[in-house]
C-alpha cells in the first residue's frame, strides 16, 4: 500500500537576472491506495499528473511532503537505500518503444533486472529462465515466439505488455501507469487495461493510474478512487463510480463531456458541453479559482476567492457545485 501526505513540487525556472519564476506543479496532494486498490489521476496535458507519478517512482524529489510505502517513510531513507526500496514502485510510461532498448532482445531486456535479484537471493540461471517465462505468460505473451524478438518486431500493445512483464520481474507493490495505453491502438488498449486490472487482484498491487481518459480510469479502477487535477490542484476527488455519476466540478464535467458519444448506441447526456477553447497557459491570480478563465459557469465570486477542496469521501473545490448530466446513456 501507499500513503502520500501533502505532496508539493515546485519547479523554479531561471528568469535572467531578475530572479526565479516558481511554478507549483503539484499542490498539497494527499491520498492513499490500499494493496490491490486503484487510484486514477485524471487531467489534461500540463496538469502536473506526470510529475506526481515521477515522484512516486523516485525519479523526481518532492519539494515537501511524505510518501509512505508499506509503512516505511520513503523520504527519511538515505538515498542509496531509497533507490533499492523504490524498486517496489514500477513506472510504466506512455511510449513502450522508448522504454525498451531497441538493440536488445525481449529475453535480454527481461533478464537484466532478474540478474540483480538472482545475485541478491543466491539464485541461478535456471531460476532466471523460469521467471522470464512466468512473467511473459502472465502478461499474455507466448515466450517461445517473443523471446528472441526485438522491440520493433512487436505491435504497440505487445511492447507495452513486455514493459509490464519487465516491471513484474521485481515483484512490485505499486505500479504507476502514466498514460500507459494512449499510444496503443484503441482496438488493443482494452487488453492492456484488463491486464493492469487483473494484476491488482492477483498480486495485491496498488495501481496509480494516470490518464486523460475517464473511460480507461473507470475500466481499471471502478472500485477505486478518482482524483481530478487541474494545474496541479485537486479539483474533485472521491470514489470513481460516484464521480462519474455525480460530477460536481465543471472541469470534471468537461472531461466527461469530452468522451465521444457512440452514435447509434448512445444518446449524449442532456447537459453535455464541449469547450471550444483549448488549455490556456495564462496565470490565474492566487485569489481566483484556477478554473475560472475556462469555466462556462463562473460567477463574480469565482474571481475573488479561490475555493478549497471540501467534503468527506467525495470532495470538490467549487463555489457553485451543481451536478450536470453530461454522461452519455445507452439507447
Amino acid at each position: 500500500m501507499i500513503d502520500v501526505k501533502n505532496l508539493v513540487k515546485v519547479f523554479t525556472a531561471k528568469k535572467g537576472v531578475l530572479g526565479h519564476d516558481a511554478i507549483e506543479a503539484v499542490s498539497h496532494m494527499s491520498f492513499s491506495i490500499p494493496g490491490g486498490g486503484a487510484l486514477s489521476l485524471i487531467g489534461e496535458s500540463g496538469s502536473g499528473k506526470t510529475t506526481v507519478g515521477r515522484i512516486l517512482a523516485g525519479l523526481e524529489v518532492p519539494t515537501s511532503g511524505d510518501i509512505w510505502i508499506q509503512r516505511v517513510n520513503v523520504m527519511t531513507l538515505p538515498p542509496a537505500e531509497r533507490r533499492t526500496f523504490l524498486r517496489q514502485v514500477q513506472l510504466i510510461q506512455q511510449d513502450p518503444y522508448q522504454a525498451l532498448n531497441p538493440a536488445r532482445t525481449i529475453e535480454q531486456s527481461l533478464e537484466d533486472p532478474l540478474k540483480v535479484i538472482a545475485r541478491e537471493r543466491g539464485k541461478n540461471g535456471a531460476w532466471i529462465q523460469s521467471r522470464v517465462h512466468e512473467v511473459l505468460l502472465r502478461v499474455g505473451m507466448d515466450p517461445g515466439s517473443v523471446l528472441n524478438k526485438y522491440p520493433h518486431m512487436l505491435s504497440g500493445g505487445q511492447r507495452q505488455r513486455i514493459v509490464i512483464a519487465r516491471a513484474l520481474t521485481v515483484e512490485p507493490k505499486v505500479l504507476v501507469a502514466d498514460e500507459a495505453v494512449s499510444m496503443i491502438d484503441v482496438s488493443l488498449r482494452l487488453g492492456v487495461l484488463k491486464l493492469l486490472k487483473d494484476l491488482r487482484q492477483e498480486f495485491g498491487i496498488s495501481l496509480f493510474f494516470i490518464t486523460h481518459d475517464v473511460a480507461s480510469a473507470r475500466y481499471v479502477g471502478e472500485d477505486g478512487q478518482l482524483f481530478v487535477i487541474y494545474k496541479g490542484q485537486v479539483v474533485e476527488s472521491g470514489p470513481t463510480d460516484e464521480i462519474i455519476s455525480q460530477p460536481h466540478h465543471p472541469y470534471t464535467q468537461a472531461l466527461l463531456s469530452a468522451v465521444p458519444v457512440l452514435k447509434g448506441l448512445e444518446d449524449p447526456g442532456p447537459d453535455r458541453f464541449i469547450p471550444l477553447r483549448g488549455n490556456d497557459q495564462e496565470q490565474v491570480p492566487d485569489t481566483a479559482c484556477i478554473y475560472e478563465p475556462r469555466c462556462p459557469f463562473a460567477q463574480a465570486k469565482c474571481q475573488k476567492e479561490r475555493p478549497v477542496l471540501q467534503g468527506a469521501g467525495h470532495a470538490y473545490a467549487c463555489h457553485f457545485p451543481v451536478v450536470r448530466r453530461v454522461v452519455a446513456t445507452m439507447k
Partner: peptide, 9 residues
Amino acid sequence: LIRAIPRIS
C-alpha cells in the same frame, strides 16, 4: 472494435 471501447456508462 465496438466491444473493445471502454465506456463511462
